[in-house]
């Protein structure tokens, strides 16, 4: 199955203006926003989030848990790939073909899904370049950071789901849709990547009781660790609250910084994730602080040494 990954995640929320404040500060561009109806929030390549009121009649039914995720819109490479998904899933469930060509169905645990030919627009933007001894990444005279440089989400990276039954989830995403398991945190669950996307993961499942089913977090890729640090620092300076990070995960190698949000889940900045192909041998490690990160830091307000020794001259 030539699936790329989530193009859009749709939420039904109970505080639309709060979500607008959060997502615009996070760096997504609002499209068609109104406080009454919500709007779309777009990353640089056209992927993004759609925020609607919880009681918006156009949304698919809510999960019984109160979780605000209402729909994952998954992008595939072309019409042939879309037809392949339609044929496969129509074997045992209703798959609707909407007027705009989108497929609509459910996975085996009641998560609502749509499939479409991906709307991603490839970006012509360089990634972060690093100078190392004898291995310069940047041209001479090119500076690595400026205070006001852009640090915007480039593409929707991944969604992490609280999932009551991991075997059922794997049975659907791996065995029906052809996702590959890249690594597994035992005690939590597997990381998966679809066949048409080399990213370490577009989905990660965490085993939970049924009353928790829903989205645990979502993440957008930034252009590199410096952009991630700048974007997160800007959030902190505006009074938004970090949940975890900044740090760097082991599985996937991605830099991370998670923020709590009015979407009822964490929203992560992510950068420099590993890519894989089918020659990759999946790893396994027990879920816990050691396996979850190579290092973990904590933000603080800007500070500089200075002022001289006690009693000495200022400056």
């Amino acid at each position: 199955m030539q699936i790329i990954g989530p193009d859009f995640l749709v939420f039904g929320v109970d505080d639309v203006p709060a979500c607008h404040d959060f997502l615009t500060a996070y760096g997504l561009d609002p499209v068609g926003y109104s406080p009454e109806k919500g709007g779309r929030y777009i990353a640089l390549d056209g992927t993004g989030l759609e925020i609607r009121r919880r009681d918006d009649p156009s949304l698919p039914p809510a999960l019984k848990t109160g979780n605000m995720l209402r729909l994952q819109v998954i992008g595939v490479v072309d019409e042939a790939a879309l037809s392949a998904v339609e044929v496969e899933l129509s074997r045992d469930r209703q798959v609707l073909r909407l007027a705009d060509g989108t497929l609509r169905t459910q996975d085996d645990q009641g998560f609502e899904l749509a499939f479409q030919v991906s709307i991603r627009k490839p970006l012509d933007l360089p990634g972060e370049k690093v100078n190392a001894p004898y291995a310069p990444g940047r041209p001479v005279n090119a500076v690595g950071v400026t205070q006001d440089m852009p640090a915007k989400p480039r593409t929707l990276s991944h969604v992490v789901l609280f999932t009551p039954d991991i075997d059922t989830a794997v049975g659907f995403y791996r065995d029906r849709l052809g996702f590959r398991i890249t690594d597994t945190l035992t005690g939590a669950g597997p990381f998966l990547r679809p066949q048409a996307n080399p990213d370490h993961h577009t989905h990660f499942f965490i085993r939970t009781p049924p009353y928790m089913q829903g989205v645990e977090h979502l993440a957008f890729h930034l252009g590199g660790p410096t952009e991630l640090m700048l974007a997160g620092s800007r959030m902190m300076e505006q009074g938004f609250e970090s949940f975890w990070g900044p740090g760097r995960h082991k599985f996937g190698s991605n830099w991370f910084w998670y923020f709590k949000s009015p979407l009822g889940c964490n929203v992560e900045f992510d950068a420099d994730m590993d890519t894989h192909d089918d020659t990759w041998a999946p790893r396994e490690a027990p879920m816990g602080p050691e396996a979850s990160q190579a290092f973990l830091l904590q933000w603080r307000a800007k500070w500089a040494p200075g002022g001289g020794p006690p009693g000495g001259p200022k400056g």
Binding site: D14, P262, G264, C265
Partner: peptide, 13 residues
Amino acid sequence: NGARTHLACHAHG
């Protein structure tokens, strides 16, 4: 929360 009826944890709802 949005309706101001409950205290809410905004990590996982």
